[in-house]
């Protein structure tokens, strides 16, 4: 069995186990929180492709997520479009936007990409929040084109309420699980593909990769577009699942929460983002009581992980395995002096 087949099998196994949860637990909170986990895990698994594999430190992921969410909500709200149709449209719009962004920024150097993408996200946010001109005037009050500070609600759902009655959230659970499973399998295929391997070569040794004639720009654009699809789709599903979309999806603390998942789990590893998403959702649950102290905890987790384990928990685990198997061979001694 190849590494790719092994990882995909593992992924399907985990998904199968996750599918049992609503059958064994009738605690609604557990099921709905797990649905949110599916959404965030989808976002970070795909962000990891851009950041960890493509080597592009883009901060536009939540903007792509928002584009998916807003498109879906606006289609439903203004045109009454079925959510089943609106969701993929949202995802495709995110792809278009992402490719345009990629064309603009992928030739820039690392920190400039981060700044540019952060600026783009901020422009979108400010445009939505600062727009106070009424586009329509529903009974609930003035409604700007993009929803303004309030955002959209009551734009439709997937019809699980009619189908499943009070158990509608279980239907959404399986939609979330399906999206994550597909996003994860795509991620495994990309990372284990010749393209993914070439990217890791590029990351580890740019000169070598350049000598092999890799068209870095083309592949980066590819990854940018691909990951935007799932990020946008996750956003669309988020809109449907929560039944409301507002500018809060752009918030910095949200971006930070998701970034921390990747960092804690392990940038550039297959399972890192999932592990990180799981751990941080538990950590957030545990720190819920702490109020504002929660942010201090999140900040500390991020700093400690970046400083002490740059490849995250999964990277640490991999190093440990390698160290155990290579113990008989020559171990790498630690340097004795600091150069700074």
């Amino acid at each position: 069995m190849t590494a790719r087949q092994r990882d995909i099998t593992l992924c399907l196994l985990f998904s199968g186990l996750a599918a049992l949860l609503p059958l064994v637990s009738d605690v609604r909170y557990t099921v709905t929180q797990t649905t949110f986990f599916f959404i965030w895990a989808t976002v970070v698994v795909q962000w990891n492709l851009v950041f960890g594999i493509g080597g592009i430190f883009s901060l536009a992921q939540m903007a792509l997520f928002a584009i998916g969410a807003y498109t879906t909500a606006m289609l439903g709200y203004y045109f009454g479009t079925s959510m089943i149709l609106a969701m993929p449209i949202g995802a495709l719009l995110a792809v278009l936007f992402s490719v345009a962004l990629g064309l603009a920024c992928l030739k820039l150097r690392g920190p400039y990409v981060a700044l540019l993408t952060l600026c783009v996200a901020q422009v979108l946010y400010l445009t939505i929040v600062n727009d106070t001109d009424c586009f329509t005037n529903p009974p609930s009050g003035c409604m700007p084109l993009m929803g303004g500070v309030r955002g959209f609600s009551r734009f439709g759902d997937l019809g699980f309420r009619e189908l499943l009655g009070s158990g509608f959230y279980v239907g959404r659970y399986y939609v979330g699980l399906a999206i994550l499973t597909v996003a994860m399998i795509v991620s495994i295929i990309v990372i284990r593909s010749p393209m993914g391997l070439a990217f890791q070569a590029l990351r580890d040794n740019p000169v070598y990769a350049a000598a092999r004639g890799m068209d870095r720009f083309k592949y980066q654009l590819w990854i940018f577009g691909l990951s935007a699809f799932f990020t946008g789709l996750a956003g669309s599903f988020y809109a449907v699942n929560t039944g409301a979309v507002g500018p809060v999806v752009f918030s910095f603390s949200h971006l930070l929460f998701l970034l921390s998942m990747i960092i804690v789990g392990g940038v550039g590893t297959i399972w890192g983002p999932i592990v990180g998403a799981l751990l941080l959702m538990f950590a957030e649950e545990a720190m819920r009581e702490l109020g504002d102290m929660r942010d201090i905890g999140m900040g500390l987790i991020l700093v400690v992980c970046v400083v002490l384990m740059p490849r995250g928990i999964v990277g640490l685990f991999e190093d440990l395995v390698r160290w155990r198997t290579a113990r008989t061979a020559q171990a790498v001694p630690l340097p004795r002096r600091e150069t700074v």
């Binding site: 340097p335 004795r336 002096r337």
Partner: peptide, 20 residues
Amino acid sequence: LVPITAGQITLAGTRIDPLR
């Protein structure tokens, strides 16, 4: 400028390898 993992460097009898 390069980390040393073993050995000694001495200048006129004084060790310099641990220095920055």
